[in-house]
Design a protein around this nucleic acid. Structure first.
Length: 263
DNA sequence: ATGACGGTGTGGCACCGA
């Protein structure tokens, strides 16, 4: 099976691209971020007609997250129960698998703007609260994926320009939060399969950044110890970034078990 | 480089993203 994460930068604009991509790619679960839609604007019917179960936590203009799945989802949690948040950034659900249940936590982590900003302080509080809540989830679910637009690079390989080291998404404080979250027993699934530099999931719209591969890897799928032996591949799919009017992010796809047969 | 691009609504520009 395959699990993917994709920041679509407005589902209202990107829905046709999402439907096309789902038709061309045999994923079973897709976590979406930056819906920029209020709950009542979520395109549940169009997705249902395409065969997708969906749960969502929307917000007008900013943020908003959803999970799409071929299987029905249970035990849906919206936002961190331990963190009062006016912003819709987290949604979790449980999927029944042959090998037991799979817990999927999908997040749009705060951007942080700049290390000396109020938004950075919010990002740190948000990350602390996530780290405090995750042990509860990990205790209940051996098979767990924490995925999404984390707005944090893991190390210098994830950043196109070394001059960006220390700036937003690349600060020691942000990376330390991710290290501590992973120390709870989560693994960076992409790095299980490649140590290549210059693998990115986001490219600025400006300055021909995608064509020049000037990007950052900030979208991640972190998997629990019990899932690690099942992981067989993880890769960025750059194809949707080549569409007209693309999102600035590309999907990242994790494969568990046998890779699906080519379409 | 106080720039660039793209989405949203408070709209004809400002704010935000990363």
């Amino acid at each position: 099976m395959q699990i993917a994460t994709w920041n679509v930068n407005s589902l209202g604009v990107r829905l046709p691209q999402v439907l096309d991509w789902l038709e061309a790619n045999p994923v079973d679960v897709l976590g979406l971020q930056e819906l920029k839609l209020a709950d009542d604007k979520f395109p549940a019917q169009a997705l249902a007609e395409a065969g997708w179960h969906a749960v969502w936590h929307g917000q007008k203009t900013y943020n908003g997250v959803a999970l799409l799945s071929r299987m029905p989802m249970q035990d849906v949690v919206r936002n961190n129960p331990q963190f009062a948040d006016e912003q819709s950034r987290l949604i979790a659900a449980t999927l029944p698998l042959k090998t037991g249940t799979l817990r999927v936590i999908n997040g749009y982590f705060p951007n942080g703007q700049a290390p000396d900003s109020d938004k950075f302080a919010y990002k740190m509080r948000w990350l602390e609260a996530l780290r405090a809540w995750l042990p509860h989830e990990l205790n209940q679910h051996r098979q767990l994926v924490l995925m999404g637009d984390m707005n944090i690079t893991m190390d210098a390989r994830d950043v196109w320009d070394p001059a960006l080291e220390g700036s937003i998404h690349c600060t020691p404080q942000e990376r330390e939060q991710l290290v501590q979250i992973m120390a709870l027993g989560l693994h960076d699934s992409l790095r299980l399969f490649t140590q290549e530099p210059k693998v990115y999931s986001w490219w600025d719209y400006r300055d021909l950044a995608f064509r020049r591969n000037r990007g950052m890897r900030i979208d991640h799928l972190l998997i629990s110890e019990a899932l690690r032996p099942q992981a067989t591949a993880c890769a960025v799919d750059k194809a949707p970034r080549k569409n007209p009017r693309p999102s600035d992010h590309a999907p990242v796809v994790l494969t568990l078990g046998q890779p699906p047969a080519a379409a």
